[in-house]
Design a binder for these strands. Structure first.
Lengths: 353, 353
DNA sequence: TTGTAAGCGTTATCAA
DNA sequence: TTGATAACGCTTACAA
């Protein structure tokens, strides 16, 4: 590590600009602080005389007044902030989702506070509590899974929340998800059309709704097309797990399927690695389809055939769902399912005999 | 869009668990709230009798008391939060940086509030102000550039901040960066050793310190090795800009360099696209080196030879720098430069004659 | 329509 | 060492 200190110091800290308070505006206008508050608050601006309101607005702008969200939050127990709980920001599906959430929230004056659990339940619980302490108005869970969960507790405690990407098992929070079954059907049909008659599915952990929906759809699609099928459950939705699954499959030798529908792009990528390591080639020896169309999937070697999920829009819809919930104070048990699309690229080809 | 509403409603919102306040603990212990505050605050716990402190701690735990950060923030004008301003979370170098920042912050009780500017100065300014309003204790800028900037204003106003990845031109905030010059030297040497004698550099926008450092190093490295050089300045650090630069370069025909050192991986990826579109191949017709080793660069087609920057650690160091600044209340003008490493993969090969 | 005043849950100053 | 008390900056009954 190189450290180069020029020795120049910034001297005394300049003072962070004195914040102008509501009282300053009130004084300038010659009116009571309460009136200023009412005039500046969309919900109460009707209660104040049009002309005074105009004068207050002008003064506020002149002084550069902006309400202190901390003080307001203390008073109203609302922070105009929503917590976003995801497993890991470096999983490439999350940045687009988060940006979608923020883009929707920003328009309504809300901000997103994003935290990472690394898939650890204890961490998730701690982060959840700390978000509540910070007075978030609601939570968007990107960590949904079946069984006991933080989301389940949140629901029991009446916390406003929604799910994104995955649902929460039995917990009736609204969710924004992709039409995963459609995507899997398209993938299987595509492979069938290419001539594949034995196809494998790398399923994600059974606790995730995305895993279950995709693997059920896989079974249904294969059966309806008369395709022989194998399902291998991966420990996680990760490159390593995908590699392990593919290695196991390749060991089948002659009975090895000619194509795989991976539960997500990371598993597909793991399959790439296994294929390469086994001295085989994709798509010549094995066709591989991913799921999500994560950023840069088109730049993989070979470019990945995958199912595109509108991740940004998933984020937008989840945020809308939450905002709606905050407004109506009613938790609706519904799913918004967005259409997905098979993107055919270079990782699929006819099987060779 | 498919909407399926089961019609099941969650009934009346359960009530979010009643928060237990400092007064509740005080009452239980039979002591004044002020004492509880002192006992629970690391800075003042020495002022309270060991035994009372123990009783207070026990009661707090029993009741599940946790201080309300909003109330505390109002009183102390500190939120134990730092703002992180980056251009775009979907730029793959940022998730690792952000995780690094958070991992350091978490240990010290701070949280990170991340916002995206999309490279727009006005947006950045608005977000900056809103972060200050939210009482962030400091800011980490991932958006540094030369000339008038939000960081410059922040410095003038005495705001605690540090830079990550890029520095802020003339503004003397501390910065955590990579040893970019070393990386470029390694890249040029690698290409020279392969036999390349004319090399191009795709430089990023001149306002970024990363661009300047890298392109200066490129010039120096080529000159010291007697390599002919061309520099093309890209409009942005983006795939599209890289493609444009490469297309322009390929149009040179016979005078086209046989290798390019791209200012970052995105520019390199753009060059991939241009090469493919021109019916050429990498590395056969053109060797390409990237910069950063963004996630999944090894999975590109071909796997990208690039300079690995320890992005996560950059985040960690930036956070440390800021925490240090918050503690000492002194803005030190220094740079922490972390070593980088050339990762040779499949996008570089000897030139063919 | 506007003023008054209480209070959100802490921390910090001052006395005891 | 502890208690009393006054802020922090805002919103919101309630009164005028």
């Amino acid at each position: 590590m190189g450290i180069g200190d020029t020795g120049v110091k910034a001297g005394m800290m300049g003072r962070v600009t004195e914040r102008v308070r509501i009282a300053d505006v009130a004084r300038l206008v010659g009116v009571h602080p309460g009136t200023v508050s009412r005039a500046l608050n969309p919900k109460t601006e009707a209660e104040v005389n049009g002309e005074t309101r105009a004068r207050i607005r002008r003064a506020a702008k002149q002084l550069g007044y902006t309400p202190n969200p901390i003080a307001r939050g203390l008073r109203t127990s609302s922070s105009m902030t929503v917590g976003v709980i995801i497993p890991d920001l470096t999983n490439p599906i999350f940045p687009p989702i988060v940006r979608g959430i923020e883009s929707c929230l920003a328009g309504r004056g809300y901000s997103a506070f994003v935290v990472n659990t690394d898939g650890d339940e204890k961490t998730e619980r701690a982060l959840f509590e700390s978000l509540l302490q910070r007075q978030v108005d609601g939570i968007i869970f990107g960590t949904g899974h079946a069984g006991p969960s933080v989301a389940a507790d949140a629901f029991a405690r009446g916390v406003n929340a929604v799910m994104v990407n995955r649902d929460a098992g039995g917990v009736p929070y609204p969710a924004a998800v992709g039409m995963d079954a459609d995507g899997i059907h398209s993938a299987v049909e595509h492979l069938h059309a290419l001539g594949h008659r034995t196809i494998a599915h790398f399923a994600g952990p059974a606790a995730f709704s995305t895993s279950r929906v995709r693997s059920d759809a896989f079974r249904a699609a294969c059966d309806s097309l008369g395709v022989e099928r194998v399902t291998i459950e991966a420990e996680q939705f990760s490159v390593d797990a995908g590699k392990a699954a593919a290695t196991e499959m390749i060991a089948l030798g002659a009975r090895c399927p000619t194509a795989v529908v991976a539960g997500n792009d990371l598993l597909a990528l793991g399959a790439y690695h296994a294929v390469r390591e086994a001295g085989l080639r994709c798509p010549d020896d094995l066709s591989i389809v991913g799921f999500n169309d994560m950023p840069f999937a088109e730049d993989f070697s070979p470019p990945l055939t995958t199912v595109r999920v509108p991740l940004f829009d998933l984020g937008v819809e989840a945020a809308k769902l939450l905002l709606d919930q905050l407004q109506t104070r009613e938790i609706r048990n519904l799913q918004i399912a967005l259409p997905v699309e098979l993107i055919v690229r270079g990782s699929t080809a006819p099987p060779r005999h």
